[in-house]
Structures are given as structure tokens and as C-alpha cells.
């Protein structure tokens, strides 16, 4: 068995609202290996962000982790006391959020916001922390770094703010970086710059990254391995090339079909997945994707399939040895 940075097992998280229990995550397991970029992909509401926020116990009001474990460097993050966990956050594990507009405190200078993260975990002077902040700003390529420390978030563009967020996340050389849709709120050109920066930093600093996104283009570009989430469950997990070459789950196939491919000159039409994601207040007993699946079988509605396979795993009854053979990839081209 290979060494892992983070090992999540059977994580289940629910949100308790006035209308009932929303089962956002329903038993997710995965490993993050050192120095790899793991992509978490899925539609909004698939549970990808909640999974990561659960691991760090940063859920918003109403969210509760019901079961599971998250082993990081030998300790279970989910049973660690709040104090010890906060020693890890921002130190061994850095986080970048989706919206750089709202994730920075508008009333504090960006320098202060970077420095407080350093000062929390390192016993150094403010001057040293400032020097480190300048270093970080240079690392994330913010021009005239030293001068910009005194600026407030509203004086930055979206892309620059996200660079600040990355600087905060990297402040203490984390072993693991969780990037929750880091480029979704940005312009397309800025998206590419930030992604390139992330990939470059990951390789230089040798950290592991969990990249959450709904954008398969991003997945293809930077990740090593992919976890496809749907309805709070892992639907498929595979090395990125394998996933794109031979998707094992109709949902993944559907996702690929909904992505434009400029290299493709066959004038293929984009195929949206019909229907809408399951109601997580009362998730269906069988495969959550079955109601939208072109290959749905009686069994799919009755019972949730397990993850079939090793390395490349798919949660689909079609992978069962007895199942009728369907050419899933054929559907994409059709």
C-alpha cells in the first residue's frame, strides 16, 4: 500500500434545516498521496465542497459530520479537539476558497491577513513575518509585493485577491492544500494564470493538492487523479487519463458529453444530461443517477451499487460481471 497524506473513510455529513436533514455527503472514502493533485469533480450540490470542509471541520451553521474518519499524518482530524485541529489548519493544511471577493476580510490590510496566519503558527517577530509575507507575495507573483502589503482587499482585482488567498494558504508551507473551486469566480484568462500558478507551486513546494471543481477542463489540465462525486457519493475514481479515455460510469460519460472539445472536428453536438440532481432531503434508495441514466436497469433503482474495480473504480451495476454489456463510450460519440 502506498503512503498517503490524507485518508478519508466513510465520511457522512448532513445539514439540518427546517425542512429536514439534507444528506450532503453519504459515505465518501478517498486517499490523497504525497505530491499529487487530486481532482474532485461534480455538479453543484454533489457534495464535493462539503466533503473537504468536513475534513477541516469548517462547516457552516447547521452542518454536522455524522460518521467517518479523516487520517492526516497519523491523526484523525474528525476526532481531534478543536484546539489541536486549529494548530494544523493554516499550518500543515492550507485552504483556498471559491470567491476571493468575500473570503478576505474587507477591513484589514492584506498584509495583516497574511501575517496573522504566519504569526499564529510560527514563533517569529512581526518584522520576520512581514518579510515572509513579502516573500509569499513574490511567490504568488503579486507585483511590488512589499508596497501591496498595506493595501485593502477592495483595492485588488479578483485574480490578485485569489493570489493573496493562495499566499495565505501557503504561509506555513502546508503539506496539503485544499483548493475549493479556486478559479470559478474569475475571468477565463485569469483562471488559466491561477491554475498555472497552482500547478507550478505544487511542483516546487512538493505538496499534495485537492482541487475541487465542476470544470472538467480544469481537471484535464492539472490533476493527476480524479474523484467524480454525485449525490453525496463517489461515482468513479481513476487516474485522469484513464477517466477521459475510458469512463466507467454513465454519469462521467454524461459529464464528458457536456464539455465542448475544440480539438474534435467531427461536429459532435454537446449533450446535456437530462433531468436534475437528486433531492438530498430524501435520496433514492438505489443509484442516485439512475433516474437520469440512459442505461438504468431495475436493479439500479432498487439497490445502490458498490464501487467495482481496483485503481479505476466505478459505482455502477454495469460493471457487475453478470450485467448486460453496454458500450458506454459509444454514447458519447453518438
Amino acid at each position: 500500500m502506498t503512503q498517503t497524506v490524507l485518508s478519508v473513510r466513510d465520511l457522512a455529513t448532513s445539514f439540518f434545516t427546517r425542512r429536514g436533514e439534507v444528506q450532503a455527503v453519504r459515505g465518501v472514502s478517498f486517499d490523497v498521496r504525497p505530491g499529487e493533485i487530486l481532482g474532485l469533480v461534480g455538479e453543484s450540490g454533489s457534495g464535493k465542497s462539503i466533503t473537504c470542509m468536513s475534513v477541516l471541520r469548517l462547516l457552516k451553521t447547521g452542518g454536522r459530520i455524522k460518521s467517518g474518519s479523516a487520517n492526516f499524518e497519523g491523526t484523525d482530524l474528525l476526532s481531534l479537539d478543536e484546539n489541536a485541529l486549529s494548530d494544523l489548519r493554516g499550518n500543515r493544511i492550507g485552504v483556498i476558497f471559491q470567491d476571493p471577493m468575500t473570503s478576505l476580510n474587507p477591513t484589514l490590510t492584506v498584509g495583516e491577513q497574511v501575517m496573522e496566519a504566519i504569526l499564529r503558527h510560527r514563533s517569529i517577530s512581526r518584522a520576520q513575518a512581514r518579510a515572509r509575507a513579502v516573500e509569499l507575495f513574490e511567490l504568488v507573483r503579486i507585483p511590488s509585493a512589499a508596497a501591496r502589503l498595506k493595501s485593502y482587499p477592495h483595492e485588488f482585482s479578483g485574480g490578485m485577491r485569489q493570489r493573496v488567498m493562495i499566499a495565505i494558504a501557503l504561509a506555513c508551507d502546508p503539506k496539503l492544500l485544499i483548493a475549493d473551486e479556486p478559479t470559478t469566480a474569475l475571468d477565463v484568462t485569469i483562471q488559466r494564470q491561477i491554475l498555472a500558478l497552482l500547478k507550478d507551486l505544487q511542483q516546487r513546494l512538493g505538496m499534495a493538492v485537492i482541487l475541487i471543481t465542476h470544470d472538467l477542463g480544469v481537471i484535464a489540465e492539472v490533476t493527476d487523479r480524479v474523484l467524480v462525486l454525485y449525490g453525496g457519493l463517489v461515482m468513479e475514481t481513476a487516474p485522469v487519463r484513464e477517466l477521459f479515455a475510458a469512463p466507467g460510469h454513465p454519469y462521467t460519460v454524461g459529464l464528458l458529453g457536456a464539455v465542448p472539445d475544440l480539438r474534435d472536428d467531427t461536429h459532435r453536438r454537446l449533450t446535456p444530461i437530462p433531468g436534475s440532481p437528486p433531492n438530498m432531503l430524501a435520496p433514492p434508495p438505489g443509484c442516485p443517477f439512475a433516474p437520469r441514466c440512459p442505461h438504468a436497469m431495475t436493479r439500479c433503482l432498487a439497490e445502490l451499487p458498490p464501487l467495482f474495480g481496483e485503481g479505476h473504480q466505478s459505482r455502477c451495476w454495469l460493471q457487475h460481471p453478470d450485467a448486460p454489456k453496454v458500450d458506454a463510450v459509444h454514447e458519447v460519440a453518438a
Binding site: L56, K60, S86, D87, F97
Partner: peptide
């Protein structure tokens, strides 16, 4: 307390008082 930057502050590992 529901603002995103409060989550950022928690993600930095800051102490509750801070």
C-alpha cells in the same frame, strides 16, 4: 459570523478569541 472571511480566519487556524 456567516461571512466567508470568517471561514478563512478559521481555516488559518486562528484562536477563537482572535
Amino acid at each position: 459570523l456567516e461571512q466567508d472571511y470568517m471561514t478563512t480566519a478559521r481555516a488559518k487556524g486562528l484562536k477563537p478569541g482572535q
